[in-house]
């Protein structure tokens, strides 16, 4: 204490010193800032620039202002891609959230071999998406795939899985659920571990049953964690690309062409990078708006 006082007396006034320190800590950020500027900020700005051009890879480019955006909003193919993405995201959020919550509640209980069971449960999340998608493709084979064999065992008719326009999106969602439910589980499990015990004891004394305790104690206390999981899930589902591209490349026809696939095809199959950049900008705005909306919800949940 004594020593600190003498130092404080010798040093410049507190506020100035703090600012001085802050500036010196700034040097720690400089290298990362340079890299972030080069590989993250520059692409954002350059995308805006490219999106204002009629720009073909290996061809000519012409300034067209907002024409790409105008074209985008009257492009029915893009409209369908938006709707498909919405449908895909809706399914790919609801199922992992429900299953992930159930799994988190299960893994929050103590049982033999819990550690092993949890490790197995999170494996899909870490597995290489492309490798996994290839093996899924084999299981979907209409004649020889193991999934249709499983359906036959329980007396269900065979499905066309990813080979029919009606079932392709639900099938892709199935993989997404398999892949990402573990992350939802982990996020909610982290929340469950942090819950206080007192309310449960009070509820027990008041004679509440298990469901009542869950409905009126666990769920409200868990809400912030559920919302975080929801935010992450929504964004990840919107971003889904690898699995869809590897398995269907947007097909059959364009039945699984989501925004991301549409964007990829525009840029790297049709070399229409100006138009594709406009898609990137719109996509970016959608994701930011969604994240902001969900963050806002979280603030409200926290306050109440």
């Amino acid at each position: 204490m004594q020593q600190a006082d003498t130092i404080a007396a010798a040093a410049p006034p507190r506020a100035a010193r703090a600012r001085n320190y802050a500036r010196r800590y700034g040097w720690f950020i400089v290298p990362a800032a340079v890299v972030v500027l080069a590989v993250i900020i520059f692409p954002w700005i350059f995308t805006l620039y490219v999106s204002a051009h009629d720009w073909h890879l290996g061809g000519e480019r012409r300034w067209v202002g907002l024409d790409n955006y105008i074209k985008l909003f009257s492009d029915s193919r893009f409209g369908w891609a938006m709707l498909r993405t919405l449908f895909y995201t809706l399914l790919a959020v609801i199922f992992p959230m429900v299953l992930g919550l159930a799994a988190a509640l299960a893994f929050n209980r103590k049982f033999p071999l819990r550690g092993l069971a949890r490790t197995i449960f999170i494996l899909p999340m870490m597995a290489t998406p492309v490798a996994v998608a290839l093996v899924w493709t084999m299981t979907f084979h209409p004649q020889l795939g193991v999934l249709n064999w499983l359906l036959a065992q329980v007396g269900l008719p065979p499905s066309m899985w990813v080979y029919s326009t009606n079932t392709v999106i639900p099938t892709l969602v199935l993989i997404e659920v398999w892949h990402w439910t573990p992350l939802v589980m982990l996020l909610i499990l982290g929340g469950l571990a942090s819950l206080p015990i007192d309310p449960y004891e009070a509820a027990k004394i008041d004679g509440a049953n298990g469901w009542q305790a869950f409905r009126h104690i666990t769920l409200p206390l868990l809400m912030p964690f559920i919302v975080v999981a929801l935010i992450i899930r929504c964004i990840d589902a919107l971003k889904a690309f690898d699995t869809i591209y590897v398995i269907t490349q947007g097909g059959p026809g364009s039945a699984s062409e989501t925004i991301n696939i549409f964007l990829y095809l525009q840029a790297f199959a049709f070399y229409n990078v100006g138009y594709a950049s406009a898609v990137v900008v719109v996509f970016f705005v959608i994701i930011m708006a969604l994240a902001a909306l969900l963050l806002w919800t979280r603030q409200r949940v926290k306050m109440t």
Binding site: A22, I40, F42, K239, A291
Partner: peptide
């Protein structure tokens, strides 16, 4: 962490949630 640079942290977060595909065209 030391500077409590919330804006820098937010920027990193935005970078994390942006689809990888969107960096590809400019790069």
């Amino acid at each position: 962490a030391k500077m409590h640079a919330m804006r820098a942290a937010a920027l990193i977060l935005i970078a994390r949630i942006t689809p990888g595909l969107s960096y590809l065209i400019p790069l």
